[in-house]
């Protein structure tokens, strides 16, 4: 129950605020423009509907990762800088419970983003192929990635104890994770590109979306990539637990 109160406090502090909801408003406006252009613009509207669905799924996943990284960077370092962590640590609550509550709030963030994206996904993917299975994979892999990057960022935040430095490293991680976008199709086919694709959980997710939504491949085909993403999730949770256990004033 203490975890729930920490989570509630975090949600009130970060999400149910004008700044927090501004993120959602901006996300919604971007999705509105994207979906409207996809369906009405002369050339974009003739993209295959699976292609449109795939692009919106990638956008939402990337945004979920970015917001998770930013949220995580402030989680512990922000409390230290604002002088509020000490009072929390004085309370009879373990550091793991504090971290779990904060992670729960980060996941709530992702849940809201996902809920915002649903109407757009339905409208863009209507009548096309693999809409529901695509949404299911977005829910599954998006959640894993939100946990992975939020937990990693929070662990970093508790070790570095500086919001600015945590944010810088988090953005760097985001660029690394998003690197598949910057590589051309030919580059991604090279040994270097394939290694990046293999080890990068975000690349794993977007390749899975491609495979499911555009190529209609079944779960058996995705199992390896999903397993790798799960592995990253467990690794990041371990990193978070280990980092907070060492957290001291």
């Amino acid at each position: 129950m203490k975890i729930a109160y920490i989570m509630q406090k975090e949600i009130r502090e970060s999400i149910l605020t004008p700044k927090g909801f501004l993120w959602y408003a901006i996300t919604s406006m971007i999705l509105s423009v994207l979906s409207y252009l996809f369906l009405t613009n002369s050339e974009l509207s003739l993209l295959d509907q699976g292609q449109m669905l795939y692009m919106i799924m990638n956008f939402i996943t990337a945004l979920g990762i970015l917001i998770g990284l930013v949220f995580g960077a402030d989680a512990f370092a922000g409390e230290i800088e604002r002088g509020t962590l000490e009072a929390l640590l004085l309370s009879p609550i373990t550091k793991t419970e504090i971290a779990t509550g904060k992670l729960g709030a980060a996941l709530t963030n992702w849940g809201i983003l996902f809920a915002i994206s649903l109407p757009y996904l339905f409208v863009v993917g209507k009548g096309g192929q693999n809409l529901f299975v695509g949404i299911a994979y977005l829910a599954l892999l998006g959640t894993f990635l939100a946990i992975t990057f939020s937990a990693f960022s929070m662990g970093l935040s508790s070790r570095i104890k500086s919001v600015k430095n945590s944010l810088i490293i988090s953005f760097f991680i985001f660029l690394l994770a998003g690197s598949p976008i910057f590589l051309s199709a030919a580059q991604r086919g090279t040994w270097f590109g394939r290694i990046i694709d293999f080890i990068n959980p975000f690349a794993g997710a977007i390749n899975t979306f491609d495979s499911v939504v555009i190529d209609s491949q079944g779960f058996g085909y995705q199992a390896g990539r999903v397993a790798i993403i799960c592995g990253y999730t467990l690794l990041s949770l371990w990193f978070l637990k280990r980092s907070v256990s060492r957290l001291e004033m």
Binding site: R82, G83, E86, L90
Partner: peptide, 11 residues
Amino acid sequence: AVPESNGYYEW
């Protein structure tokens, strides 16, 4: 305890 670095959730 009332610590020296006594920060609050000002909101």
